Simulated assay, not measured.
Amino acid sequence: MTSEQALAPPGRGRAHWHTALALAVLVAAAVLARHHWPVLENGAGRLAGADRGTLLAGAAAAAGTWGCSALALQGAVVRRLPGRRLVAAQFAACAANQVLPSGLGAGAVNLRFLTRCGMTARRAVAALAVKTAAGALTRAVLGAGLALTCPGMLRIPQVSRTAVAVALLLACGAVLLTVSLGPRVRRAWSAVSADLRAVHARPRRAAALWGGSLAFLVLHCLVLIAVTQAVALPLPPARVALAYLAASGAAVLLPTPGGLGSLDAALALGLAVAGAPAPAAASAVLGYRLLTVWLPLVPGLLVLAVLVRRRAL
């Protein structure tokens, strides 16, 4: 098996499993939403009376995330990418990510964009893997830094024995899967590590990769902080940022389109654990989704159509 095959996107069978799991999570989210409808309705009413100026600041932070994503992707690639098309592709990828589960929409758009820029499929997939790894590591370091510098900020909720047993079973399954895919994982990591070395041999590219990844997360934290301030949620900004980092990291494990349902539940839980009342947490989640998903969705799909029409994708 070649390194290109080792880094190839998931096949049709795996995509079917992703879709089935996404539908299951969405159905569960719908059931929970129906069960907690009074809380959601109260949260929507609270959001309607939120401070418009603070929400506008949050919208500006949300718009900046596309530029940060473009900067991180440029940092993962040695060759120079066309700047305007790169930012437009990130805007379109954000919209496509709301349609397909587990980041497949954004990955497909970016993969197509990089190959249109003259990169081979192997190099394009490796670049996306480098960008994803940098984002995950940055999230972990930033979250750990917040937790360590603010003692007592992280409240650990009581967990039932059933939840612990399920978590252990999932961990064992992940270990067994990693062992069974050992040769493929090693080949994929060998290809990605080669690209990592090439990127870090250029200080500008390394700075763009890590700086863009960090700025992307910080701006998303600022969006949520702005929404919590707009709805007068009584939480300090550092605690809100830590709740976002923990929730977004947990939502990656559930492959729903754009994290719909999984991120919402994890974010509401994170804010509630941090000390927010349920209606206020619901309004904050709704406001965050409004600024990062629903408002940019239609313009993003239009940009995606234009890029396809112009053969940029």
Rank of each mutant, 00 (worst) to 15 (best):
M1C: 13
A6W: 05
A8T: 10
P10R: 06
G11K: 06
V31L: 14
R34M: 14
R34T: 12
W37D: 15
A44W: 02
G45D: 03
L55A: 14
A62E: 12
A63L: 12
W66T: 10
L71A: 08
L71H: 02
R79A: 13
V87G: 09
A92E: 14
V109N: 09
N110L: 14
C117S: 08
R122M: 07
R123W: 01
A126I: 00
K131D: 14
A140W: 01
G143V: 04
G145E: 11
L146M: 02
L146I: 10
L146A: 10
V159S: 12
A165H: 02
A167H: 03
L170I: 02
L170N: 07
G173D: 10
G182W: 11
R186V: 15
R186F: 09
R187Q: 15
A188D: 09
D195S: 12
D195A: 13
L196A: 08
A198L: 11
H200V: 09
R202N: 07
R202K: 06
L219E: 08
C221M: 07
V223D: 08
I225S: 15
A226Y: 05
V227G: 09
T228D: 15
A230L: 10
L233E: 13
P234I: 07
R239Y: 06
Y244W: 06
L245M: 07
S248Q: 04
G249Q: 01
A250H: 00
V252Q: 01
L253A: 09
T256A: 12
G258R: 06
L267S: 10
L269F: 06
G270T: 08
A272E: 14
A281C: 13
A282I: 07
A282V: 08
Y288K: 15
L291T: 13
W294F: 13
L301Q: 13
V306M: 10
R309H: 02
R310S: 08
L313M: 11
